[in-house]
Design a protein around this nucleic acid. Sequence first.
DNA 1: AACTGTTTACCGAGTA
DNA 2: TACTCGGTAAACAGTT
Length: 166
Amino acid sequence: MHEERTPPFSSLTSLDLESSLTSMDWLPQLSMRAAIQKADKMVHLDPGTTLDQEEAALHRDGKPPYSYASLITFAINGSPRKRMTLSEIYQWICDNFPYYREAGSNSIRHNLSLNKCFLKVPRSKDDPGKGSYWAIDTNPKEDALPSRSKKRPRSGERLKTSLGVS
DNA sequence: AACTGTTTACCGAGTA
DNA sequence: TACTCGGTAAACAGTT
C-alpha cells in the first residue's frame, strides 16, 4: 500500500525563503532558480535540489523545462525519507506537472535505471509491495561514466523483426 | 496478468 | 557534420 502518500512539497525552500525575505536576500534565490534551470546542463544535478511551489506553478501547464532526471530528483528530495517507488515518483510528477500525465511512466523507468545517480533501495521484509525504492546517490563514484558513452553501431535487427521477414 | 527494471534502438535539438 | 544528450518506444526478463 502507498500508506505514506507524501505531500507534493515538503521541501523547506519556500519556508526558508519566507524567513529570509527581510531585504534583498531573495536575490540569491533567483540565481538559485537559474541554477536549477541550468541543472540539466550540469554533469550531475545537485543531489539536494528541491522544487518550490512557485517554481512548479510557473510550469503547471505546458512542458516544464526540466529533464526527467531533474524531475525525479525533485520528487525524491521532496519526500521525507528521500526515497520513492516508481509509482510514487510517477504520481508526484503527474500531480505537479499535469503535462506528464499523458506520457506514462516509461521514460521515468528508463531514466531511473539508466542514470547512475539513482540508487535502487530494496524493500525490507516488513514492507512488502511492488518495486524497490529509489534514492539519490549521494556518493557518486568517479568512474561512474555515463552509460551511453558512445553511440552504438546501428543494426537493422529491429526493422527485420518488425517487418516480419521470413 | 500487471507491474517493475534493464536494455537496445531511434530521433531531434543543440553544440564543438 | 559528427557527436552528445534527452526523450520516447519497445522488447524482454524478473517479480508480485
